[in-house]
Design a protein around this nucleic acid. Structure first.
Lengths: 158, 158
DNA sequence: ACTTGCATTGTTATATGATAACATCACTTA
DNA sequence: TAAGTGATGTTATCATATAACAATGCAAGT
């Protein structure tokens, strides 16, 4: 789990690696990491917090890279579709993936005080829910798992 | 788990029980199940599908029980706050609780074809995620768990 | 180089989901 | 019956997301 995001870490490396991996994966799969898409990923990578689409759009606007909602939604759709970013349903917001390239079922720990989001990974068909779904004949294709609470830093501060 | 919702069942009893339990719980806790709130719960209970707030509002309008968004959002807030309904984050929609009255951490199985939603219950601190959160010092307060896939009926039809 | 085809981007308009703010009404209890 | 609280009515607005279509860019084959 990438709970390092709750503590100090080499964030510059964190960002650089995110872009590098995305570029490599795109090259390998024949996807186009265009300037807009790349910039949106950089913006998401700049913080371990989920950002709303319109917050991203505001930054793009300031840089002359797009003025209308579809611009940012298309870039976000691309990043989510190919696993470079995730949508946090509870927040209607987006965050860069910390394990791009590898297929995985993400789960998130969301701090309600500082809004930091850590990405964990789970077995989609595992646990009680997987057992019950299996028993009921329900086929799980995707999972949304988001835990809300307090990160260690905010808990200690309180 | 209430996976009976994927199959034929006595739905009239299902609905009646939902209202009866809510009324009993409200009486016990000194909450007011007003006509609007009761009617919204009835509407949600009428199907095992999540409904958007505006879909509920459209029905209320047709019955002269409220014309503006805040009417339905206030009723839904009440129902969710007291555990008579849940919000499905993935769908931005609401569904009646199948275990009203008892505190619980709900999880949902959402069929992408027929939109039926079954409610299961999980141990919020259990499983891999609970372990990892504990190890990271993260305190889980609430969980959003939504599995998307195919219910038995729709899987067989395909 | 040319052109054909497809992915990407630009732009307008609108759909969909949610809340702030304030006035009014109703129920309780002292 | 007045005061306090919770519930409702209403207007306006904010926030999130997508449809539709035009214009552009890029890559592959000839």
């Amino acid at each position: 789990m990438d709970t390092k995001v709750f503590a100090h870490h080499d964030h510059a490396a964190c960002q650089a690696e995110g872009i590098a991996v995305a570029a490599a994966v795109c090259a390998q799969k024949g996807l186009r990491l265009t300037p807009q898409r790349r910039r949106v990923l950089e913006i998401l990578l700049s913080r371990h917090r989920a950002m709303g689409a319109y917050a991203v759009l505001a930054i793009l606007r300031g840089e002359g890279m797009g003025n209308q909602p579809p611009v940012v939604y298309r870039a976000l759709d691309f990043l989510v579709k190919h696993g470079f970013a995730h949508k946090i349903e509870r927040l209607n917001a987006f965050i860069a993936c910390t394990r791009p390239g590898a297929p995985h079922a993400p789960a998130f720990l969301i701090c309600r005080t500082c809004d930091t989001v850590a990405e964990a990974h789970i077995d989609p068909g595992g646990g009680t829910l997987g057992d019950e779904a299996g028993a009921a004949g329900f086929t799980i294709e995707r999972t949304v798992v988001e835990a809300l609470g307090l990160c260690p830093k905010c808990r200690d501060a309180a």
